[in-house]
Nucleic acid binder design. Structure first.
Length: 309
DNA sequence: AAAAGTACCTGCGCGC
DNA sequence: TGCGCGCAGGTACTTT
């Protein structure tokens, strides 16, 4: 579900509420949502309660909230930590006032904010592919900010479990030349490469299909046969598609994707390829097709998007 | 080493 | 109506 635009909508919504807020209590209703936390649920709770969040940061589809140091003892200074969250396929972070409840809440944080007072943060996740964890922050390899933090500053740090994730195409520190060179070295289909978060992050099945349609590139086009010009054009279309979705508040098909305040985002009316099988291609009028791909589907126009050798 | 396959989950809509 | 099946926006681990 949530790809970069949807996750950014969540991050931006959380930023003013969590920045400066202290975690007053934590309830874990389903420990499977903590599968990425390297210790039992009690450890997650113990490490989080009493900590203050400094910012809301995002790289690709990963979110994290850097925490103030657990101990004020400067002599015993440890690795800085963050609360890391990933929404998986069906995750939501819902901000509520203290009384409100939500179905399928897996983890709940009660927050105390100096201005906004008491807030409740419900981590809701139908399929439990998403997760929360406490993780150590490591220096970024390039010394650039770890991710996007809106008005706040991310610092040149990234959670250890996010370190292998590439920067996303909207990140000012994203290196176009390096990406294009790495893409050309791959020996796979271009859609697989777009979905590989270690090559470029933030793109999922919807925006991969939309970007490929916009760039007129076939999803199975071999990466080592994609011309430099077409690869550049594809990267440009990826950026346009993500930015447009972000402007419109993220895609949503139904109530499954809900933004941070519980209201649905909407963008699905402007999809050109994804989910449009059988409908005319908005460019040439011929039918869009759907093909099985990685246990999901690929949607494209067989006329506009052809494999080139 | 890189690429492909598989596991992890719940719930919805569909055809029978 | 009920039931089995296919399908869903992702990541990480294992296998080849």
């Amino acid at each position: 579900m949530p790809e970069l635009p949807e996750v950014e909508v969540v991050r931006a919504g959380l930023e003013p509420a969590v920045t400066g807020a202290t975690v007053s209590s934590v309830a874990v209703f389903d420990a499977r949502s903590l599968r990425r936390h390297p210790a039992p649920a009690e450890d997650f709770v113990a490490r989080l309660v009493g900590r203050r969040m400094r910012a809301a940061v995002r790289r690709g589809k990963f979110l994290w909230f850097p925490l103030d140091d657990a101990v004020e003892d400067a002599a015993e200074e440890g690795v800085p930590e963050a609360l890391v969250a990933h929404l998986g396929m069906s995750g939501q972070v819902l901000l509520r006032d203290r009384a409100a409840d939500d179905a399928r809440t897996r983890v709940r944080l009660e927050l105390d904010h100096p201005e906004h007072g008491a807030l409740r943060l419900n981590f809701v996740d139908q399929r439990i592919f998403g997760s929360m964890a406490i993780d150590g922050l490591l220096p970024t390899g390039d010394g650039e900010p770890g991710g996007y933090a809106g008005d706040g500053a991310s610092g040149p740090l990234v959670p250890s479990r996010v370190a292998h994730i590439a920067r996303d195409p909207l990140d000012p520190a994203f290196d176009d030349r390096r990406f294009l060179a790495a893409l050309a070295r791959r020996r796979t289909g271009v859609k697989r490469a777009l979905l590989d978060q270690t090559l470029v992050s933030g793109i999922g099945n919807i925006y991969a299909d939309e970007s490929l349609w916009a760039a007129r590139v076939h999803p199975e086009q071999p990466t080592d046969r994609l011309s430099r010009v077409r690869a550049r054009r594809l990267l440009g279309e990826v950026r346009l598609v993500l930015a447009r979705a972000l402007d419109e508040g993220g895609t949503s098909f139904d109530a499954q994707y809900v933004n941070v305040n519980g209201a649905s985002g909407y963008f699905s009316h402007s999809l050109n390829a994804y989910g449009q099988q059988g409908r005319p291609c908005p460019r040439c009028g011929r039918p869009i097709v759907r093909e099985a791909f990685m246990n999901r589907g690929s949607h494209y126009c067989p006329f506009c998007q052809r494999v080139r050798v």
